[in-house]
Amino acid sequence: MPRLLRRLAVLTALLLGSGLAAASDHWVELAGERFQVEIAATEAQRARGLMYRERLEPGHGMLFIHDWFGPQAYWMKNTRIPLDILYFDEQRRLVSQHRDVPPCRTRDCPVYPSGAPARYVLELNAGEAARLGVAEGAELRFGPGIPAAAE
């Protein structure tokens, strides 16, 4: 029995390290395509974001829900994968985007501002925004269980 417990502990550690254990049944839809998303609705979750991840599975992303509607700015400190950063207003319309943002492992990482007030930020694998052809005004649809704003 101890051997089985040890194997389960190793498997759990691997899942947690890869981010798979944090996956959920939440989804968003953009340009007719559905993405499974992790929700970052607390300050701690937003601060950590996708840091230290080695990869983001295809068809997955992270949805950041901010407490306030206003200018937002993101950076890629300790982020190991290139991303598209998409900013949405309170009506979930795309107001700005930064495509193919490279990882940053230094102390002086550039900041990527929203350029317009935003409430929601969607991070996807780099290249997804171009593949989908999303432009400002594109609508982000939420699946069930995603709060309209941070509580």
Rank of each mutant, 00 (worst) to 15 (best):
A47E: 14
P58C: 09
P71D: 14
E90I: 13
L94R: 05
E54V: 05
P58W: 04
M62D: 00
L86F: 10
D67R: 15
Y87M: 03
R48V: 12
Y87E: 11
Y87I: 07
F64D: 02
M76Y: 08
D84V: 00
Y52I: 00
L63Q: 05
G70L: 05
Y74L: 12
L50R: 08
R53E: 02
W68R: 13
P71F: 08
W68G: 10
T79Q: 05
Q72D: 04
L94H: 07
R53C: 09
W68S: 14
F69V: 13
A47G: 03
K77T: 07
R46V: 10
A44M: 09
F88S: 09
P71K: 07
M51I: 06
E90Q: 14
K77R: 15
R55E: 15
H66A: 13
A73Y: 03
D84T: 03
F88Y: 12
P58F: 06
Y52T: 09
R93D: 06
Q72R: 15
I85E: 00
L86H: 06
A47Y: 11
Q91R: 15
P58Q: 10
N78R: 10
E90F: 02
K77Y: 11
L56K: 01
R53S: 01
R80L: 15
L83V: 05
I81T: 01
L50C: 08
P58I: 11
G70D: 15
P82R: 05
M51E: 13
Q91V: 03
L63H: 03
H60E: 11
Q45W: 10
E54A: 14
G59S: 07
I85K: 00
M62P: 00
W68Q: 15
Y74P: 02
A44W: 07
F88D: 09
P82G: 08
G70S: 14
E54Q: 12
I85F: 01
Q91G: 12
L83K: 08
V95E: 10
P58N: 04
L63F: 02
P58V: 04
E57K: 12
V95C: 08
Y87F: 15
H60C: 12
E90L: 13
W75Y: 12
K77S: 02
K77F: 09
Y52V: 01
D89A: 09
W75A: 03
R48T: 11
D67M: 01
I65E: 02
Y52W: 14
Q72K: 15
G61Q: 04
R53W: 01
L50I: 11
V95N: 06
M62I: 14
T79L: 00
E57T: 13
N78P: 05
M76D: 09
A44L: 12
E54H: 05
W75V: 05
R93M: 02
G59W: 10
E57S: 13
H66E: 08
M51S: 15
Y87S: 08
P71A: 14
M51F: 06
R46T: 07
Y74T: 00
G59I: 11
D89P: 06
E54R: 13
L83G: 04
H60Q: 12
L94F: 06
F69S: 11
M51A: 15
